[in-house]
């Protein structure tokens, strides 16, 4: 089970949170403006490993937080 540390409320189970998506930028290698837009809107890193994500503590302090999670082991890294 995934436990997420909230800066305000402490360690709480994942069911209290809403997932806000991976935090990602568009690669510098994509130079065309339209291609950058397509990448930003549709594409994901979807990394098997550590990702940086946004979460919303829906059933708690109702604040957003950023954390690093390993998507293979489902453990919050930091």
């Amino acid at each position: 089970m995934l436990w997420i540390p909230c800066p305000t409320c402490g360690r709480r189970p994942v069911e209290e949170y809403a997932f806000g998506g991976e935090l990602r930028g568009v690669s510098e290698r994509i130079t065309d403006a339209t291609e950058r837009d397509v990448d930003y809107v549709w594409m994901y890193d979807n990394a098997a490993g550590v990702t940086v994500e946004r979460w919303f503590h829906r059933a708690g302090c109702r604040r957003w937080l950023t954390l690093r999670r390993d998507t293979v082991t489902d453990v919050v890294v930091a």
Partner: peptide, 13 residues
Amino acid sequence: DAQPSYSQRSSFS
């Protein structure tokens, strides 16, 4: 499940 994951673990919830 709401969040992406490659873990094939099941949950009680």
